[in-house]
Design a protein around this nucleic acid. Structure first.
Lengths: 209, 209
DNA sequence: TGATTATGAAACGGTCCTGTTGCGTATCGG
DNA sequence: CCGATACGCAACAGGACCGTTTCATAATCA
């Protein structure tokens, strides 16, 4: 994914090798700045170089443009929290939403998410990268949980998995963004899941809670 | 909401009055540029002046900073489409989601929405303004539809209205943004509403469709 | 050692924008 | 008519950043 690569295999190209430390500093500085609310378009190479304690030359030598750098920076984000996957389907879904909620409270995650959400027009590659790194893995995990529920009978057998994921995730994001009381509501995940489950459950439901 | 105002009441302050036409041109140019994907931070007074066929002075005379201008520009956006409110609750909800879907296909609306969604950290006033202008009116309309359904028995009597709105709107936005096939899916509103309704309906449901 | 490449720092000319000022003209009230 | 204010336009100094180049220094290989 690097824009310019030198060593490839065993043949070292002679001369001083590129500093891995500098590379890490650059990417870390990039993520820091993005995490502080700087948008991609305002992000300047000079500010990154300054933050990383690195000459501009060192950056330009490795990435030919800003977007490539940001793409590589996003690539270093680990897919965080693989979800417990232990209890009932309801519990797993609540846990999933709680992770989203918790992340949206941290500056860094929230800003990076904003970038992915907003810059899809001008930076489609960033959005696609974010989808691969953050959205898709979670979609897969939640889809597995839902399928498990459909097998055990805890959920409708004809449930539309993608639709269910959209309802849950979308509601969480919507409420976090537009809830009149922007406060932190610890019971939000439970409320969303319970409200949604009434549609996910098989029709002949009898008991509640 | 204007930053600097002169005339106030009957006493005109003497001299040539400010051109209403210029003012409209400025705001229109601002909305145009935002609609073309320019972010708030990249939006320059010079580009607005150029687009509007106006001197920079004319802009600086009225607004002391860019954010005030954008706020005023957003304020001119009409709350579009008051929703038919005629048929069944299901039909009204489908119509509501169809409006969202249709808007998200138009550049202008989508870009302005992106601004509201993304710049909430750095431009809280813009986000708040957008909430007042775009989110809240619709929330009210949909809430009325839902309450009607709760009275007629088409919906559960203990439905959480805000949660229902979040599930519907959130799912629509989520799918529009992250759906693997980014194509236009005309049946999306129906699918979302029908999937959600299974949770909105009163429990002792018997027949389907 | 010497050839080679990378590094941080600094300086470069260039672009774009800022917010202000001056200018000649246009439009109001009196 | 006059005074006052707004208009579009051009110019200004100042700043941020671009992408490139130069330079002395550092790290690696043969």
């Amino acid at each position: 994914m690097k824009t310019q690569q030198t060593a490839e295999g065993g043949a070292r190209p002679a001369g001083r090798p590129r500093s891995e430390k500098a590379e890490r500093s650059i990417i870390e500085a990039t993520l820091e700045l993005l995490g502080e609310g700087i948008g991609v378009s305002e992000l300047s190479i000079e500010s990154i170089a300054g933050r990383a304690g690195v000459g501009k030359t060192t950056i330009y030598r490795r990435w030919s443009n800003k977007e490539d750098l940001v793409v590589d920076a996003l690539a270093t984000l680990k897919p965080p929290i693989p979800l417990p996957q232990g209890g009932t389907v309801r519990d797993d879904l609540v846990t999933y939403l709680r992770v989203i909620q918790e992340e949206s409270r941290h500056h860094r995650t929230r800003c990076i998410m904003n970038i992915a959400m907003s810059d899809s027009e001008r930076h489609p590659r960033l959005t696609e990268r974010f989808r691969e790194l953050a959205v898709e893995p979670r979609r897969a995990v939640v889809a597995a949980v839902l399928h498990r529920g459909m097998k055990t009978g805890e959920l409708r057998a004809d449930l539309d998995v993608d639709m269910a994921l959209a309802l849950l995730s979308g509601a969480m994001i919507w409420l976090t963004k537009w809830s009149h009381s922007g406060d932190y509501q610890p019971d939000l995940p439970e409320r969303i899941v319970d409200e949604a489950l009434k549609g996910f459950r098989p029709r002949p439901v009898t008991a509640e809670a």
